[in-house]
Design a protein around this nucleic acid. Structure first.
Lengths: 333, 333
DNA sequence: ATGAAAGCGCTAACAG
DNA sequence: CTGTTAGCGCTTTCAT
């Protein structure tokens, strides 16, 4: 069942190749025959068979995108941007959620690599060795993780985090606490150490709480630990955690930013509409995605392995959740 | 270039068919040879060619999912659920954003249908005729739009909206205002008329404000109109609008829910973490997605065209943004 | 339990 | 400009 190239060719008494060319190399045949072919094909309801074409050309015209969890608000804009760029170039996009699970990631990686001409892997959790092995066989670009010899584009927030600490220092804060995200997260380690280093530079005290899940609940739960310190500001791993902390503080009777300041990271769409609107670091995940796909396309079309390691700096966005340090340091409990 | 079935077969002196069976029909060959084959394949780095298998079997083991815009917070949970269900069944998932554009939707629909064994189409904007034609050739399930003869699953919120009005009535509210979403939106008309009808049933006064964009800003801007009434509760088109209204009210010095109650719709992930947490209608888009994929899989495996038209009712989720009507009706301005 | 052979639908030289 | 001829890598009867 199905109308194929041959069906169309026979209907017109031409060869299958001619029909094929009518679709893929219009410039090689006469306008007249091409027009006839297109008409008959349309009439017969001919649909090119993607798999067959892929087999013959060795190209699938499909890219794969692996993200930890599309339901995490950091990713939708990224996915959208990647898909747009892919579509512009005529590629379809396979999407898969790894669920932040190394095994699942590895399995999906192999599965999808066999189905696509290239893959974009976001925030990989699996061992570098496995990824590297796959990168030798398939064009691969990493987002938010660098592995020697593999192309990557990273949204780096260290600069933004530094700015946050400076910002807090300027506001008079002298004791802050960093509320960490998932332990295995590379970003978390980067942010944590940046905050501590910059605090030290200003002779500020920096506590660290966590790790905890990068969720509202994670931040909410971490509030208890936060309140054990006398810090006047908390720097959260990301916006979700920050919002959880804000709520936790509210429940504990603390006002943000009057009693205590809170900052997030990522500048997801809700950062600006939460209340108070979050001071945060804007990391352009969309730009990262576009860049990653672009590198992938270059790799695919040139056949040359890419190693570019692009770094996109985030920057501070000041909103209402940070303010001057309260006059007198909070009393413990 | 690449190691194929033949490469492996030759390395062991067996036939390609045997190697093929080792992967796809393990029960048909001796454990001994199978074990050897698997080992050598692994060692040689053999990767089955998806396109070739697809050509031979006529199956791509891939599903396609078209959404208006993955960056719209309504969709990520839906995409996630669809993908999980697909993955469970061994299918990969192609994702595409139609950008709420009928042309683009039509084009993508045809493109992806040729690449997948079935497609899930969310909130289609294109004409029924085109969709119907495609549904004859490809297993297709609609989400949030019903077309005669095509399987569909819809999230309906009229029941939940009714519950909201009842809820407000119980809390003592007698004058409410519905803040509408986009005019062209079918859901908006459904919600608007449901709210008015149910209000009438309780002899409540129901104003209508809008239409306005289904965004935080839209709701924020609509607040002015809301405040021209003496209503003690606002029922917003969706969560985003509701949050905008809450912020607008806050800026105007009104407390939610003490001075005035606000409800949303959809129960997006931010509904529960906004402050105050939103009373809203949970329309399980995730359940819809799972159901849709399930219907698709049934269609694919049974070969029988499905017409099921499933309707998923949303239901009220009471949180902190609604409360008893204030003792004395608010004074105008 | 394994092998041989015939495609799946399309593209891509190579002729003409 | 168009037709001929081979495959692409895999599955799948049909034999053995």
């Amino acid at each position: 069942m199905g109308v194929t190239l041959d069906t169309v060719a026979r209907a017109l008494g031409v060869s299958p190749s001619t029909v094929s060319r009518a679709f893929t190399r219009p410039e090689l045949i006469s306008d007249e025959t091409r027009y006839k072919i297109l008409a008959v094909a349309e009439e017969l309801g001919y649909r090119p068979n993607h798999a067959a074409r892929g087999l013959a050309t060795g190209k699938t015209m499909t890219l794969a995108l692996l993200v930890p969890d599309i339901a995490n608000p950091f990713f939708p804009p990224l996915v959208r941007a990647a898909e747009d760029r892919a579509q512009e170039a005529g590629y379809s996009m396979l999407l898969a959620d790894t669920d932040e699970h190394a095994d699942r990631e590895g399995r999906l990686l192999r599965q999808l690599a066999g189905q696509a001409d290239g893959v974009v892997l976001c925030s990989p959790r699996s061992p570098a060795a496995g990824i590297r092995r796959l990168a030798e066989e398939t064009p691969l670009v990493l987002i938010n993780r660098a592995i020697e010899g593999i192309a990557s584009v990273s949204c780096v927030t260290s600069d933004g985090m530094r700015q946050i600490v400076d910002h807090l220092h300027t506001l008079g804060h002298r004791e802050i606490v960093y509320v960490g995200g998932p332990k295995s997260s590379w970003s978390n380690q980067e942010r944590s150490s940046t905050v501590r280093r910059q605090a030290r530079k200003h002779a500020m005290t920096a506590h660290v709480v966590g790790p905890c899940p990068a969720t509202f609940e994670g931040g909410f739960a971490a509030t208890e630990e936060v309140l054990k310190t006398t810090a006047t500001a908390v720097v959260a791993f990301d916006d979700m955690v920050a919002m959880g902390v804000v709520e936790g503080l509210r429940v504990a009777g603390r006002q943000v930013p009057d009693d205590i300041s809170v900052s997030g990271c990522d500048d997801g769409f809700f950062a600006s509409i939460s209340s108070p609107a979050l001071t945060t670091v804007r990391s352009s995940s969309a730009a990262a995605a576009r860049t990653a796909v672009q590198i992938l396309l270059t790799h695919i079309s040139s056949g040359e392995h890419q190693h570019d390691s692009v770094v996109l700096e985030g920057h501070l966005v000041v909103r209402q959740s940070t303010g001057p340090a309260p006059r007198k340091s909070r009393q413990r409990q």
